[in-house]
């Protein structure tokens, strides 16, 4: 399938999803659906770096929340259209990824992972001490009832934007898999020293991956303040973002784009149901146990059961 065909198909599917949600015409569908879609973007973004190059980013909450707080700051400074705000948040988090990568990617991968883990703590410290965006007390954001230009409910609008981000993120992931860049990423993941010797500019490729991955995480986080209307550091930097975002690709499979998509749809939907019926702590425990269980028992994830990532994707990929 060509890139444009895929994009067209993805847009059609997204349109069908929106139409179906609108047909149900129940506010909860959009509220819950937004979270599921947000995780599709986060899981796909994480996998660009983690799944393709093998570098594990634990600082998801940092990238995600920094963009959310960029939105809060922008709202106070100069109200801009939300799509522009999303791009701004993506740019900030992309730069954060680039900076993190530049400082730690010359070292062994495990040092990068530890640094990202610490980075999330520091980003939170920074926001707690930043009174302009509410500091530790948090910030209220007013969600308009309707959008000015589309004349739809604002929650529908947020849902629609997140749906668009899903399409862009998935199309990007698929494009990378089928390009020279994706081959270079795979070489890095398998053996960095040999990749260098085979002419792959490993540092540059890793920086591209961290920046892209960070940017998509930021874009997923930028609309958050309008969704929750009240944002404080403990909820914005919640560890559950990191755990979910890592668990989803690892459960779905990291080798190809359907993995994070399947993992996110499955796990996020399950959580929406469990949170409603049981409790959020239990639901996070389930995710943690599933994560550990899957990486031990099914290292190639759900798509591995169907042979994706081992043969099917590769077959279609040769140029």
């Amino acid at each position: 399938m060509r890139g444009w065909t895929f994009l067209l198909l993805a847009v059609l599917v997204a349109g069908a999803v929106y139409a179906a949600a609108a047909a149900v015409n129940n506010g909860y569908v959009f509220f819950a659906g937004y979270v599921v879609l947000q995780y599709v973007v986060l899981a796909t973004a994480w996998n660009l770096l983690g799944g393709y190059t093998g570098y594990v980013n634990f600082g998801i909450a940092g990238f995600f929340a920094l963009a959310a707080y960029t939105t809060v700051a922008l709202e106070k400074l100069a109200p801009l259209p939300l799509p522009v705000v999303i791009l701004a948040g993506g740019a900030i988090s992309g730069l954060l990824g680039l900076g993190m990568g530049y400082l730690t990617l010359r070292l062994r991968g495990v040092f990068f992972s530890i640094a990202t883990l610490a980075m999330a703590v520091v980003a939170q410290t920074f926001v707690v001490n930043w009174n302009f965006v509410g500091g530790s007390a948090g910030a209220f954001v007013i969600r308009p009832q309707f959008t000015a230009w589309l004349r739809i409910d604002y929650i529908h609008y947020l849902f629609l934007l997140m749906l668009g981000l899903c399409v862009i993120a998935l199309a990007t992931a698929r494009l990378i898999e089928r390009s020279r860049l994706g081959d270079g990423f795979a070489a890095i993941r398998d053996d960095e020293l040999a990749a260098e010797a085979a002419g792959v500019p490993t540092l540059r490729l890793k920086l591209i991956a961290t920046a892209l991955s960070g940017a998509f995480m930021g874009m997923a986080g930028a609309p958050l303040p309008y969704y929750v209307t009240y944002l404080d550091p403990p909820s914005a930097f919640s560890l559950s973002y990191a755990v979910n975002t890592i668990a989803m690709p690892l459960i779905g499979g990291t080798a190809a784009w359907p993995g994070p998509l399947i993992g996110a749809l499955l796990l996020a939907t399950l959580q929406q149901l469990v949170t409603v019926t049981i409790s959020s702590a239990v639901n996070l425990l389930i995710v943690g146990l599933m994560l550990v269980g899957f990486i031990i028992i099914a290292p190639r994830g759900i798509i591995g059961w169907f042979g994706i990532g081992a043969g099917l994707v590769r077959k279609g990929k040769r140029r």
Binding site: V56, V110, I246, L250, G288, L289, V292, I295, P299
Partner: peptide, 14 residues
């Protein structure tokens, strides 16, 4: 590497 790190992350979380 990747899975080992995720394993310990899962343990931390659990």
């Amino acid at each position: 590497s990747l899975r080992g790190l995720a394993f310990f992350f899962g343990l931390l979380f659990i």
